[in-house]
């Protein structure tokens, strides 16, 4: 393994990690502030990807599709809050799970019904299809764009949460919603905004990754599972924790797989090594999660008892 390959893998895991962060951020915010388990977040991601892919196919403008993805994500987030989540606050989390389970089934079947079961493919926008050289490493331009966009959004989230009035209210809602409402802040509207933000970020992730994956029913669930692992490792409710944990999970998924193949090839037959390494790398992830939870049950940035984490 050369240094260049190593660097390329670092960049790949950075890209995956940042996309996971975009999903996990919405999940952890909704969770930390409203105590709502939104397992339908992956469905929002899928619907946004479909929206974006269809708009790109119709208009032939990638940017328009990306915006459509963000829009669809935000709108679904708002719809979810208004029609479902709002009615389930403070109830047994079992009902959150049931409601989002129903939504996942409905969402997957709906796209199969309306768009059809065949996957959609989107091309990388012209002008970004080539390679760029970064520190002597060849990197597909589009992955570079994703990394840049992901880092910008992460930085933007930090700024939004810690340096704006909206962010201040958001943090206040996380520690005491009732008190905030008593101080005259329209908490219901704030909650809608949080769901819209989370949905929009998921839509952005969908719009950015769409050329690299196939858009098909059920594409949201693997991403949801990874995002769940991210927020459990990072500490439920903490955006900062989600950011770091997303990078860690991205690193394990990409590097673990690559290193395991190389390592196992020395021990086993080449084909066997290729066959078992994806399985082992998914177990590696669970091992890391287990170790982190064994040491810190609340995750890396455990939310304080009684309130959720603060950004």
């Amino acid at each position: 393994m050369t240094i260049a390959l190593f660097l390329a893998q670092i960049l790949n895991s950075l890209q995956l990690g940042l996309m996971l962060f975009l999903l996990a951020a919405g999940l952890t915010l909704v969770f930390g502030i409203m105590n709502f388990v939104n397992l339908a977040h992956g469905t929002i991601y899928m619907m946004a990807a479909y929206g974006a892919a269809l708009v790109v196919a119709m208009s032939d403008h990638y940017l328009l599709g990306l915006l459509a993805g963000v829009g669809v994500g935000a709108m679904l987030g708002v719809g979810l809050q208004y029609l479902v989540a709002r009615r389930l606050y403070g109830k047994n989390p079992l009902y959150h799970v049931l409601a989002s389970f129903g939504l996942i089934l409905m969402g997957n079947e709906l796209v199969r019904w309306v768009v059809g079961p065949t996957p959609l493919y989107v091309n990388i926008p012209p002008g970004f299809a080539g390679q760029i050289t970064l520190m002597g490493v060849e990197l597909p331009t589009w992955r570079g764009v994703i990394i840049a966009a992901g880092l910008t959004v992460a930085l933007g989230c930090y700024g939004l949460i810690h340096h704006t009035k909206f962010g201040m209210r958001l943090r206040a809602a996380a520690s005491n919603r009732i008190m905030l409402a008593a101080l005259g802040v329209n908490v219901a509207r704030l909650e809608l905004a949080i769901f819209a933000l989370g949905g929009g970020l998921a839509g952005l992730a969908a719009g950015l990754t769409m050329p690299l994956v196939s858009v098909l029913p059920g594409m949201g669930e693997p991403m949801l599972i990874s995002a769940l692992i991210v927020i459990v490792i990072g500490g439920i409710g903490s955006v900062r924790g989600a950011f770091l944990a997303a990078l860690v999970v991205g690193m394990i998924e990409v590097m673990g797989r690559a290193w395991l193949i190389i390592g196992l090839q020395n021990l086993l037959d080449k084909h066997v090594a290729r066959a078992v390494s994806p399985a082992l790398s998914s177990l590696l992830l669970s091992l890391v999660m287990a170790v982190i939870l064994a040491v810190r049950p609340g995750g890396l940035f455990a939310a304080k008892p009684g309130g959720a984490g603060h950004g």
């Binding site: 009615r87 389930l88 049931l98 409601a99 389970f101 129903g102 996942i104 409905m106």
Partner: peptide, 10 residues
């Protein structure tokens, strides 16, 4: 089925 589950939860 999903719709029924959702209704049950709500």
């Amino acid at each position: 089925l999903g719709a029924m589950i959702l209704a049950l939860a709500l």
